[in-house]
Design a protein around this nucleic acid. Structure first.
Length: 463
RNA sequence: GGCCUGGUAGCCAAGCGGGAAGGCAGCGGUCUGCAAAACCGCUAUUCGCCGGUUCAAAUCCGGCCCAGGCCUCCA
């Protein structure tokens, strides 16, 4: 049984999708005006874990991640460089997709761009106008929150506490209620970005794209909607209001939000200059898999404090984990140990148990590390056969469908080095340790570490 | 000011009423020709602080301190 903490009910709930064995899931994606930073990626890694885990336990996941390619920041950025909006956003979309690959993030089934769904947004806004939930002020269109009694339920916000008139755009027309939000923005000549539509000349507000695109690909009611906690209000609150007003149906069954990433204990912000992009870290030679591991290894609803020290720790963990995985091959014994299979079953059960409990990854990881410890005991005692190697490798690869932290190195050595290793083994048999150590030292200088095991000598390259 | 999280060893991090998981780092040992790897042991009489409830609290309640989030665009 899988449980998730649902922001809407503020409780951990058993998870049942609408359609048996199929999960429809929407994850708020990037606004493509710059490189994404690791804070953004924390959310995407969390969503990736959710996606992969649901598939691991047998669900078919249909996932949508939107790309916001029209808003104030993208328009401003394109204008500043004197290029078209499309040219500008295409560039950052490309970078984003590259970053996703580097962090081994699974591609959602759909990554719709807002600018390619103007028609759907217009239809939705029209519906809201027809039903009386939206109104024109000038040529802009607003959603009237007073018409939606449940407004504020997701965020638990008390509307009377929302600061009134905190920000008034000079060219924004008077809204009926300052807390109303914009669905459609009247074209501004200086922006030069607008669409001629039946509801007027303009561009969409931010919130409407997620409602229009999620419902297009997932239906009017779907299972899971995710994002960072900062999306709860007003973004997701507004999505619920406009979607449910338009359809008269429940929009989303489970809302999952991840906490923020801190950098050195502080909020990440441009003014402090304390944010990292993925590229910043890669240029410092950090292992991208370790970045993934670090973002993955803390519970998604707890704030995660990112430091380079913790990243180095993550690198060591990932390295040890992979050395375990890669080092199994050496074993060539025919003697099979039947206990290994039981260990695998035990570990797999705990692994699933942890993640089933609102993605308690720490619990799952501890079961895997305990498993590795147990396997190492059998391995170093020589109670481990060729068949066991396959079983254990298969298991590590199996859970890697969720974790994605193994590195399959198809490394080889030049024949001369392999000959040296054979020569050294012969020397050791002859008790010629001077010669043996000479060869070992030589190879070490070449970046090759030798390890003698009960099954023979194995080698690995220094990173 | 209102609402909401979190504070567990040197660092990261589970546990959320009755034995303080796991990872990283460090030290000692076993194994080894020597190493490496692995394993074993040690490193929190104690879980931000102060009270309270209870036979029993890191876990529940109250107060306080610290950090962070939302209330305005933000993963």
């Amino acid at each position: 049984m899988v449980k998730f903490y649902n922001t809407f009910t503020k409780k951990k709930e058993e998870f049942y999708p609408i359609e048996d064995k199929i999960v429809r899931m929407y994850t708020c994606g990037p606004t493509v005006y710059d490189f994404a930073h690791i804070g953004n990626f924390r959310a995407y890694v969390f969503e990736d874990l959710l996606h992969r885990f649901l598939e691991y336990i047998g669900y078919r996941v249909i996932r949508v991640m939107n790309i916001t390619d029209v808003d104030d920041k993208t328009i401003k950025g394109a204008k500043k460089e004197g290029i078209s909006l499309k040219e500008y956003t295409d560039r950052y979309i490309k970078y984003f997709l590259e970053d996703m690959d580097i962090l081994r993030l699974k591609k959602p089934d759909f990554m719709p761009r807002a600018t390619e769904h103007i028609k759907e947004m217009v239809q939705l806004i029209k519906k809201l106008l027809d039903k009386g939930y939206a109104y024109y002020k000038g040529n802009s269109i607003y959603f009237s929150i007073s018409k939606f009694p449940n407004y504020g339920k997701l965020s638990g916000i008390d509307l009377s506490n929302v600061k009134i008139g905190a920000r008034v755009d000079s060219d924004e027309y008077e809204k009926e209620d300052v807390r109303d939000f914009v669905l459609w923005k009247e074209a501004k000549e200086h922006e030069g970005v607008y669409w001629e539509t039946e509801i007027g000349r303009g561009r969409p507000g931010w919130h409407i794209e997620c409602s229009a695109m999620s419902m297009k690909y997932l239906g009017e009611t779907f299972d899971i909607h995710t994002g960072g906690v900062d999306n709860i209000f007003p973004h997701h609150e507004n999505e619920i209001a406009q979607s449910e007003s338009a359809t008269g149906k429940k929009f989303v069954n489970y809302w999952l939000h991840c906490a923020h990433l801190l950098v050195n204990g502080e909020k990440m912000s441009k003014s402090k200059g304390n944010f990292y992009t993925l590229r910043d870290l890669l240029s410092k030679n950090y292992n991208p898999v370790a970045i993934r591991y670090l973002l993955l290894s803390a519970h998604y609803r707890d704030p995660l404090n990112f430091t380079e020290k913790s990243l180095k720790q993550a690198e060591n963990t990932v390295k040890n984990y992979n050395e375990f995985y890669q080092g199994l091959n050496i074993c060539a014994s025919e003697k099979n140990n039947p206990v290994i299979k039981q260990e695998i079953e035990k570990a797999k059960k705990s692994f699933i148990e942890g993640l089933s409990d609102d993605l308690n990854i720490s619990f799952s990881l501890s079961s895997i590390f305990n498993f590795i410890k147990n396997i190492n005991v059998f391995f170093s005692k020589g109670e481990f056969g060729k068949e066991n190697v396959k079983e254990v490798k298969d298991f590590i690869e199996d859970i890697d469908r969720v974790l994605c932290i193994i590195e399959k190195k198809e490394e080889s050595l030049p024949a001369e080095f392999l000959n040296l290793i054979r020569k050294r083994e012969q020397a050791r048999k002859n008790k010629d340790f001077v010669e043996a150590d000479k060869i070992r030292d030589f190879l070490k200088q070449k970046g090759i570490i030798l390890e003698d095991t009960p099954y023979g000598t194995r080698w690995k390259k220094i990173k």
